[in-house]
Design a binder for these strands. Structure first.
Length: 258
DNA sequence: ATGTCCTGAGCTTCAGGA
C-alpha cells in the first residue's frame, strides 16, 4: 500500500506543529505541501520524523514541498513554458517509480484581471506538460491545490461562487480537459455524486462550522495509477483545530504492484 | 461590500494576497 496526501498549509511556519502531529498519526508515504509562504523550510523537523524533503520557496507567497519516506529523485522545480514566471508553484519528483507532480495553481481573482489571465495560461502550460507525460511509460500523479471547483456539487452553493475565479467556465473547462486526456479525479471517481465533500472553507462567517466549503485540492491519476486506486478521503480533522489552515488534507491510497 | 488570517515592511499599523 502506498499512501499519498496533499495539504495547503497557508504558511508552514504557522502550521509546523499541526503538520508534524498529523504526520505522526497518519504516516503517509508522501505528503505534498502548498502555500509555504516564506523562504525558510523546516526540513530538519521532517527529517527527524523520517521524511526526506524537497522544497521550492519564495518570499511571503506561494511555495511547494514534497515529503517522502522513500528515496526521491527531483526532476523539475518549475513548470516549463514561461521563463519569466518566477512563482514557486511546481515540483516534480519520482518516488518508487511513480512520477509525482505537486502543483499550486494560481488563484486568479479577480475575474478578468491579469491574475485571471495568468491562471488560465498556467493551466494551459500544465495541460501541455500532462500531454507530454502521456508519451512515456511512467505512471503519473498530479496533486495539490488546483484552485478550481470542478462541478456544482463541489461547492456548498454555486450562486455564492458565481463571480469567483475558482468557479469560472474557463478554468473549469481546462480542468475537464485534463480529465479528457485520461487522468482521473481520484476523489470523485470513488465518490460519484456525493455532495458536501470539501477541502477548503473560508476563515470568516463560520464557514467550516456550517460546512460552506469548496473542493479544490485534487489528485489526478494516469490510467495505470487509477487502476491501483484503493481509497481517497478528505481528513476534516485538522480544519477544526486551533489556528487551522483554511485547507484540510486529502489522502489517497494505491495498491502495491502485483 | 463584507468577512478572517497570513506575511513582510518596519509600523506599533498597514497593504497585498487568498
Amino acid at each position: 500500500m502506498f499512501k499519498v496526501a496533499s495539504w495547503n498549509l497557508n504558511s508552514v511556519r504557522s502550521r509546523l506543529s499541526h503538520v508534524t502531529a498529523w504526520l505522526k498519526v497518519r504516516e503517509p508515504d508522501v505528503l505534498l505541501l502548498q502555500e509555504l509562504k516564506g523562504t525558510e523550510f523546516p526540513s530538519e523537523a521532517f527529517k527527524s520524523l523520517g521524511y526526506d524533503s524537497v522544497a521550492v520557496t519564495q518570499k511571503a507567497y506561494n511555495g511547494v514541498a514534497i515529503l517522502s519516506r522513500h528515496p526521491m529523485k527531483t526532476i523539475a522545480k518549475a513548470l516549463v513554458g514561461d521563463d519569466s514566471d518566477s512563482h514557486a508553484r511546481f515540483l516534480e519528483v519520482v518516488i518508487k517509480g511513480i512520477r509525482i507532480a505537486n502543483v499550486y495553481l494560481p488563484n486568479g481573482n479577480p475575474v478578468g484581471s491579469d491574475k485571471f489571465a495568468y491562471k488560465l495560461a498556467w493551466m494551459d502550460r500544465l495541460t501541455q506538460q500532462m500531454i507530454r507525460w502521456k508519451r512515456d511509460d511512467v505512471p503519473t500523479l498530479i496533486g495539490g491545490d488546483f484552485n478550481v471547483i470542478p462541478e456544482d456539487i463541489d461547492c456548498h452553493k454555486p450562486s455564492s461562487w458565481k463571480h469567483d475565479a475558482l468557479f469560472q467556465p474557463e478554468p473549469r473547462a481546462r480542468y475537464r480537459a485534463m480529465l479528457g486526456l485520461g487522468y482521473a479525479d481520484a476523489f470523485r471517481s470513488l465518490h460519484v455524486g456525493e455532495i458536501g465533500h470539501f477541502t477548503f472553507w473560508d476563515y470568516f462567517r463560520q464557514a467550516f462550522q456550517n460546512n460552506r466549503g469548496i473542493r479544490i485540492d485534487h489528485f489526478l491519476l494516469s490510467p495505470r495509477l487509477a487502476d491501483r486506486l484503493e481509497s481517497c478521503e478528505i481528513d476534516k480533522g485538522p480544519r477544526g483545530q486551533e489556528k487551522p489552515s483554511d485547507h484540510t488534507p486529502i489522502i489517497m491510497t494505491l495498491s502495491d504492484l502485483p
